[in-house]
């Protein structure tokens, strides 16, 4: 291949390379998005690599060392059951980030498929599918979550599934709108005119071309899902002790806030705010990358 390229004088850096470089340059031009990306990377390192640097026991209670203020051994103090708060922030962060990412991505996948099929099929199929979405949006997600948790205590994967199933509605609307315009593009018409199937049209043309919408929607979905996990856990409906997440830590530390033990409530609260803002900023940056209007 390289020989051919040399023969015809085509520069070695083909389309993909220059396109990627341009995308990176656009993303870097959005300072806040860069900060957001750095924050997310730092938090991932903190939660997943941090426990090796600062190993703590998060399973057994140690009442002898409960309710300590920050010190050399416990930089962020300890909670009412004697867990090291810094270690707990890492331990809970793992759950928050995992559940948030997984649920956000699940919601995006479901929403994308639903929206693409509805938009591409059109007619009564579209009408029925979108009325389902309308009905879903009309029911508050929190209400559904409360009902489910009243019936059963979800496992980690159960929690991801439930959060994903209540938040795919908005992305499905976005993708449907995108599909409506894409399905009448000339290259889709050409494919259909020569006898190409609908499956191929959707998977090879419609979805790849809505990837910008999908990726941007996904980042916002992840941010929403992290917030939702914190929300659900704060109400005591999330992962069960001894496991925890940032929302659960907030809930557990609530009473401590009145007695001045700020280290139990400020770190998890700030962590949630920072990560959610960071994902939103990344979404903004990605939108700049894909937005062709500014060119």
């Amino acid at each position: 291949m390289s020989a051919v390229i040399q023969n015809t004088g085509i520069p070695a850096d083909v389309a993909g390379a220059t396109g990627a470089r341009l995308a990176i340059r656009r993303f870097l031009a959005n300072r806040i998005a860069v900060v957001g990306l750095v924050v997310v990377i730092l938090f991932i390192l903190f939660c997943f690599v941090g426990p090796f640097v600062h190993p703590t026991d998060q399973l057994h209670t140690a009442l002898s060392s409960a309710n300590r203020a920050p010190s050399g051994a416990h930089p962020l103090g300890t909670d009412a059951t004697g867990h090291d708060e810094l270690g707990r922030l890492m331990y809970g962060g793992k759950v928050s980030l995992l559940v948030g990412l997984a649920a956000g991505l699940l919601a995006t996948v479901i929403g994308t498929l639903w929206g693409a099929v509805a938009g591409y099929a059109g007619g009564w199929v579209d009408t029925v599918m979108m009325r389902v979405v309308d009905a879903g949006i009309a029911i508050p997600a929190l209400f559904i979550l409360l009902v489910i948790s009243a019936i059963s205590t979800p496992s980690l994967s159960g929690l991801i599934l439930i959060l994903g199933l209540v938040s795919w509605l908005v992305p499905s609307r976005l993708i449907r709108a995108e599909t409506l315009s894409l399905k009448n593009r000339d290259y889709v018409l050409t494919l259909r005119a020569i006898g190409g199937g609908h499956g191929r049209a959707i998977t090879r043309h419609v979805l790849p071309n809505s990837v910008s919408t999908i990726v941007v929607a996904a980042t916002f979905q992840v941010a929403d899902a992290i917030l939702l996990v914190a929300y659900v856990s704060y109400l005591g409906l999330g992962v069960q002790a001894p496991a925890t997440d940032w929302g659960g830590m907030l809930s557990a530390g609530l009473t401590a806030a009145y007695s001045g033990r700020w280290w139990l409530i400020l770190p998890p609260g700030l962590a949630v705010i920072l990560v959610v803002c960071a994902f939103n900023a990344i979404g903004d940056g990605l939108r700049d990358v894909f937005d062709v209007k500014g060119r």
């Binding site: 593009r185 000339d186 290259y187 018409l189 050409t190 005119a193 020569i194 006898g195 090879r204 043309h205 790849p208 071309n209 990837v211």
Partner: peptide
């Protein structure tokens, strides 16, 4: 339909940019 070839008007929209 495999016996048909198609060329449409818009040179940009006719080719999938991806």
């Amino acid at each position: 339909q495999s016996g048909i070839g198609v060329v449409l008007q818009d040179p940009v929209a006719s080719l999938d940019a991806r």
